[in-house]
Amino acid sequence: MNFPRNTRVCLPILLSVVLAACETSGTAAGPEPGPDQAGTGTATADGGATAAGAGSGAIASGTVINREGPPVAIEPGRSASGDWIGGPQGTLVIYFDYDRSSIREEYSQILQAHGAWLAANQGQTVRLEGHADERGTPEYNLALGSRRANAVNQALTALGAAGAQLNAVSFGEERPAAEGADEIAWSQNRRVELVYETN
């Protein structure tokens, strides 16, 4: 794993560093990857396709250098383009492939933003609710949902959140987001929901 060593040093710096916000970036970034966009993908490994939409939106908009506008501070929870992707106003649902608990690439920026937001808001807690689609036995699906919630838990911990801020639970197939016995419904049900708790 060639994890860049300097990133640890960089992170605090770049959080305080100023960012030239692009006026146009908000629109250029496109809509956030909500259930409709990310969730309707098929169960196969097409995560990469939608991943580009979420992850690169920020980069694409950033290439337009705004020489006029004043620099704006990076706020934890926001994307490079200034959109809320983390925190209570961010993207709150992470979708998964069938029978899998690996996190699709498209969610790395979103999780990063959540991690940063939680790091900056130590008093806040978030419940990670793992869910599965209805296929298979309810009890096994409960465990599968738990495994998904745990994957998100691990990612957020590595990206700045404290363990005490996170509470991973599973609802298995008991609380589907969409009713229906087809892949469209199932893909929306294989998910982890981030539920920010109001204290």
């Binding site: 794993m1 994890f3 990133t7 992170l11 560093v17 992850g55 690996s102 996190i103 920026q109 991690g115």
Partner: peptide
């Protein structure tokens, strides 16, 4: 510099997710 930072941040997040995966 900021953009480099953002990229690094992105690489870091990608790496974390890649590690977990």
């Amino acid at each position: 510099e900021t953009r480099v930072g953002v990229l690094e941040q992105q690489i870091r997040a990608d790496n974390v997710v890649a590690l977990i995966n």
